[in-house]
Design a protein around this nucleic acid. Structure first.
Lengths: 191, 191
DNA sequence: TATACTGGTAAACAGTTGTTCACCACGGTA
DNA sequence: TACCGTGGTGAACAACTGTTTACCAGTATA
């Protein structure tokens, strides 16, 4: 494990506990340096690598900074994860899950009307109410004064809702159909 | 919509585009203030509300800053979301999903062996390799030189794996059973 | 009417910041 | 041997930071 990698690990650790990047002076202790210039040069290297970026002289992490390794596919028959854990792709979860902050909210699911779409009781649904619903989307809709999670459909200029469970009949709203948000992602908790 | 709320919105927007909090001077423009003291007082208020925090004189967002509103349950028969969108609970997604940064990685699922556990092809699995597997956990395991996603079980001191799909037989490893990580969350993408 | 609070301006302050410059020890390479 | 790149020290600098203090207009309250 190289020194630089080790220090980046420490920087990330600092960030996740403090939700901010440390000052150069704070990095002195963090990296065991005696001169702030040593920090300056290290930071410069990380900026060139695209891990950090600077606006004026204010330091900020880049998307790459938060990226989690996507190790590959699993259970495909042939093993795709190797012992040395190389990553082909990487994803920054926060930005990936919440593309429109301020217009995103969560709902916890109860009921089984969307079970065939993989949405079960207790799941956490991420909704975006900036997006306009398109046919095929799963939406949180207010039908006849009741909120439900259903597929959004359109036929003959009229919109209607269907469940992903044969036990539930399609809903053709009599009056208004208010869309609370479009389902963007669903989080299932196993721990 | 109050002024303060509006400004917090702008602050959050700045954060998500720049991945850092703005300087007081930058907030002058952001909030349309003429005096940095106006900023100072506003920040002070937010600190008291627990939205921001200060270490020394370095500003940082708190967990509350990132919190997304959990509006309630949906599809429970009775409507629980109101027109004024009040939130009972709120969750900070990043910290919620990645409790052990540096020990967390992602896998994209292929195959249908865990379909009854709600894990489908194409889903993104969040794994934690710091956690030790307990019976009942879903794990990424290396069995006989092949990686699979299965339930972790134990009987008579021996560990074995089972699928969440009756089409697959339980796996009793002959030699070693290496656990790559425990499934913490699963993300399903609908958009 | 007088009072107090809220939300803002304006100017001045000390401390710290990120940066720069000069210098050095070490290791590899020609 | 001489040379150069790397990775670090140490000191000095200007700029900017967050903070403080004093002041003010408008609004609500007693």
């Amino acid at each position: 494990m190289s020194d630089t990698h080790n220090r980046l690990q420490k920087l990330k650790q600092f960030y996740t506990t403090n939700r901010r990047l440390p000052t150069y002076t704070e990095m002195l202790d963090l990296f065991d340096f005696a001169s702030r210039n040593a920090v300056f040069k290290l930071i410069h290297k990380w900026i060139e690598e695209g891990i950090l970026e600077k606006m004026g002289n204010r330091l900020a992490p880049t998307e790459q900074f938060f990226a989690l390794p996507v190790l590959g596919f699993i259970q495909a028959g042939t093993p795709t994860i190797h012992g040395d854990y190389y990553s082909e792709e990487s994803i920054s979860l926060d930005q990936y899950l919440v593309p429109n902050p301020g217009f995103t909210f969560l709902l916890r699911v109860s009921g089984d009307s969307m079970i065939n779409a993989g949405i079960h009781e207790g799941d956490l649904v991420i909704l975006d109410n900036k997006r306009t619903a398109k046919p095929g989307d799963i939406v949180a809709a207010l039908v006849d004064n009741e909120w439900t999670l259903k597929y959004f459909n359109r036929a003959n200029g009229k919109t209607y809702l269907t469940a992903a469970n044969p036990a539930y009949a399609p809903i053709h709203p009599k009056e208004n159909l208010a869309i609370g948000g479009v389902v963007v992602k669903v989080i299932k908790e196993y721990y």
